[in-house]
């Protein structure tokens, strides 16, 4: 069985919104350590994954490994019935094909319960090599979203060039070209609070060409986190990570476009 109580529905809503256009259905894998998910899109170009650690829930109970097959369109519709500040309780009883979601309003005067039919999905897991990236960029997720949104008006792909001084995003299309350079920065805003900053750590300069359609899809996770981390290695897939407060993360992997 599974019983997991999440303090704010908004987290789950945002996670589902940031995956549902990439993957239509997949298993949520539940274990003692938490709830995780990994699935590729139909064309095998992008992989989406997330982890929500057990300590992010209160309480969290899962006494054996479970794979719960979820259709994201259904989950998304049901989560629209939850208020952002509602507590969400996720429940699964062994040997059933139903996942229950209970939404408790903050004043406790409204408790709604929805059941979702689970699917039997045989999933294929990929083993992702654990290697140190040649370059690791941390930047404002809002800035990253804006760049992807702006450049798709020019072309269908972006070349990301990371050097010690910063990161350059360039796109070329039939009607012209554009580029945006984000310099490495550490700024402080008017209130003396550290503002989102860009940091670049690298062993090698990296240049990757990537589909903007996919990157724009990934930016749906930006509301979850102030920052995005991009792990890049030449001629390898990009890994984008958005932290989910301090309880987990969403990661996307995107295969690069490679010249013949």
């Amino acid at each position: 069985m599974l019983e997991a109580r999440l303090p704010a529905a908004s987290i789950l809503k945002k996670i589902v919104e940031s995956i549902k256009d990439l993957v239509s259905q997949a298993n949520f894998d539940c274990s003692e350590s938490g709830i995780s998910f990994q699935a590729m899109d139909e064309s095998n170009i992008a992989l989406s994954s997330f982890l929500l650690r057990a300590d992010g829930f209160d309480p969290y109970r899962c006494d054996r490994k479970l794979s719960l097959g979820i259709r994201f369109a259904t989950l998304s519709k049901i989560l629209k019935c939850a208020g952002n500040d509602d507590v969400v309780v996720i429940r699964y009883a062994d040997d059933t094909d139903i996942l229950s979601l209970v939404f408790e309003a903050p004043d406790n005067n409204r408790i709604s319960e929805f059941d979702i039919k689970l699917l039997d999905i045989s999933s294929e897991y990929l083993s992702i090599p654990e290697q140190e990236p040649e370059c690791k960029v941390k930047m404002s997720s809002a800035e990253f979203s804006r760049i992807c949104r702006d450049l798709i008006t020019i072309g269908s792909s972006v070349v990301i060039d990371a050097t010690k001084s910063g990161v350059k995003f360039s796109s070329t299309g039939d009607d012209g070209s554009g580029s945006i350079l984000i310099k490495q920065s550490a700024s402080v805003d008017g209130d003396g609070k550290a503002a989102p900053q860009t940091t670049v750590e690298m062993s090698e300069p990296v240049s990757l060409e990537l589909s903007l359609k996919y990157l724009n899809n990934f930016t749906k996770a930006a509301p979850l986190s102030e920052y995005v981390v991009m792990n890049m290695t030449n001629d390898s897939p990009l890994m984008l990570q958005f932290d989910v407060s301090d309880i987990g993360y969403i990661r996307y992997f995107l295969a690069p476009q490679i010249k013949d």
């Binding site: 992008a46 294929e124 083993s127 992702i128 490679i258």
Partner: peptide, 14 residues
């Protein structure tokens, strides 16, 4: 134009 690669050429199946 560059070709879109597949993730399968980088990641193995578990």
């Amino acid at each position: 134009k560059p070709n879109q690669s597949s993730l399968m050429s980088f990641f193995g199946k578990k």
